[in-house]
Amino acid sequence: MALPLPAFVAKRRPDWDALQALLGRQKAGALKLEELRTLDSLYRRAASDLAHTQTFYPGTDAHRFLNQLCGQAYAAIYQPPRERWPAVRDFFRKDFPVTLRRELRFVGASAALFCLGLLLGALVVLWEPRGAELLVPPGMRQYVAQGRMWTDDILSVAPPNSVASGIATNNLTVTIVTFALGMLGGLGTIYMLVNNGVHIGAISALCIREGMTRGFLDFIAAHGPVELSIIVIAGGAGLMVGQALIDPGELPRGQALSLRGREAVKLVLGCAPFLALIGVVEGYVSPGSLFPTWVKAGLGLSLGVLFWGYLLRAGSSEAVRTGAPADSAS
């Protein structure tokens, strides 16, 4: 017959208190090697006490206490490897591009959806000019009607850096939302991709109709390739999530979701620094006439090539993949 509960608690409690104190010190990061050994043996003892209470005193506070104590010790002992700077470097050197190459079909599907939106928007405006009233924000329409770029004015009213920061945060929001909406079975991501495509398509078609092709290209050339690529990649990540939700394969849906989610977020996290970079380009280089068009176009193209070159080549030992990365960029 087991001890009565109070006697059991009184007998074992010193060990538990010691374990609790050690866990507190472990959290503070002030644990010595000797104490680490003690922690281990105390944890094992607490675990066996927990098994004991599970059998003899289930549902009591002592049981709950031990449960929690062991839970904390378990979390302290079985820690996942810590992410540190080398891990970050490895992530960008290898993990991110490799993941992207593995999931290239999702990025492709996302690019296709985006292009579909682009075509739709452009066709609507080209065929039916009044469609522009629906698809292009009124502010922009006014500028275009006057034959000016809306960005010319942004620049003269506000200095370029506030434009840059506004653009950067806007792009971040679009990227995050495009990815996160994948949780709605991928429908949200598809909507975001097509919607953004339609808008951009409509605006460009409007500019072309009004004979402002040059101005529009001038504005979009420097940052367009990379920025649209990033949105397409975030869309690909969203589609991955949606796919795991709809067709989890052989895993239970919950597991498939968390597995794919961890892969998908790598794409989004990997894009973040590039997004910040391209925000700076969009704010400083793109608007106005500080730089001639050919410089902008050259910069945009080379950035696009660099970006996709990095994505498709980095981290692979057998860098065989060639092709035209630039045209898949937009």
Partner: peptide, 20 residues
Amino acid sequence: MDGSPVGLFESAVRNLCRAV
């Protein structure tokens, strides 16, 4: 889900999903 502490990726996923 297995009771171990969260890492960077899990935490990033669950917090980016605040948007949705």
